[in-house]
């Protein structure tokens, strides 16, 4: 059968394409432009080829920031995903306390990022902060401004506080969609609590977990505001993640060329990792579906 060709439909897509062009494609091209040129301002550009890429790839600075960021993402994923599942499993299913929990859980998600940073920056201070002062009073020599380990711990706890809710809420939604009959059948079959989790709850949560892991990975890999407010990347460079480093380079030092090259590689890394993640997860799905 002949299909009717009607290209007028493209006009409907046009507004969206224009918006995307102005919001994403054109700015990105500017970055590409900077990354292959040298500039001293005044809109003068000198062709630099792949020099900035070459320089950035060789720089110790990029690799150590990448390493720190990868470690950070790994740690917070390893904490937030299991913790989020655990919280979701233990939330009340209905009634007043279910709504209450939902509201409380949603609160950290509604706080602006820089406010989260400020809250924790003050909270962890040893002179006036509740947490910092308490630890200090207990005789623990806690100081996140001087001790890299303490700085890391503070930032990780902050991120867990901020984002575990997201994982928990997504999982909770998935759990709510499981019909009661499944739990009843599991009782009839004498399935243990672990087996109920493994064979009923986990398969139902898998879809949202893929989304949660992807979101948490991308966000944590791009994290900027909170550590910037709390530690400013310090002490030393110990909490300088990729974004923080990038801003230092571009705005602090005004090295626009290397910063642009850095941005592009940064973008490609996130794109690559997300793609790998997604492909692996969806393929697992297909194999099981057979």
């Amino acid at each position: 059968m002949e299909k009717t060709q009607n290209n007028r439909a493209w006009f409907l897509v046009l507004p969206m394409l224009v918006i995307v062009a102005f919001s994403a494609v054109i700015p990105l091209m500017t970055v590409v432009n900077y990354s292959v040129n040298d500039t001293f301002g005044r809109n003068e550009f000198f062709w630099a080829g792949l020099e900035w890429f070459d320089e950035t790839l060789r720089s110790e600075r990029l690799w150590s920031a990448l390493g720190r960021n990868a470690l950070f993402s790994a740690i917070i994923l390893a904490i937030e995903v299991p913790l989020g599942i655990f919280v979701a499993l233990h939330m009340p299913k209905k009634g007043f306390w279910a709504s209450f929990c939902l509201v409380v859980m949603a609160l950290p998600l509604l706080v602006p990022f820089n406010v989260v940073g400020t809250i924790w920056q003050i909270f962890a201070r040893t002179d006036i902060g509740l947490l910092g002062h308490t630890l200090w009073s207990l005789g623990i020599d806690y100081n996140y401004t001087a001790n890299p380990l303490h700085a890391w711990l503070t930032i990780i706890v902050m991120d867990v506080w901020h984002w575990t809710s997201l994982v928990a809420l997504l999982c909770y939604a998935a759990l709510q969609s499981i019909p009661e009959a499944y739990y009843q059948a599991a009782k009839i079959d004498q399935a243990s609590r672990w087996k109920v989790f493994r064979y009923i709850e986990l398969p139902k949560m898998k879809g949202v977990l893929v989304i949660a892991i992807l979101l948490r990975f991308m966000d944590s890999f791009m994290i900027y505001t909170e550590p910037f407010v709390v530690t400013g990347g310090g002490p030393g460079n110990s909490t300088t993640f990729l974004s923080i480093d990038l801003v230092k380079m571009a705005v602090g030092q005004f090295d626009l060329g290397p910063a642009a090259a850095f941005s592009i590689m940064y973008f490609l890394v996130i794109l690559l990792v997300s793609w790998v993640f997604y492909t692996v997860m969806t393929n697992m799905d297909k194999e099981e579906g057979v």
Binding site: A181, Y182, I188, Y199, I200, P203
Partner: peptide, 13 residues
Amino acid sequence: IAQVFQFPVVYDT
């Protein structure tokens, strides 16, 4: 006791 429900309950995975 064994019970079979109105709508199918299978362990998908």
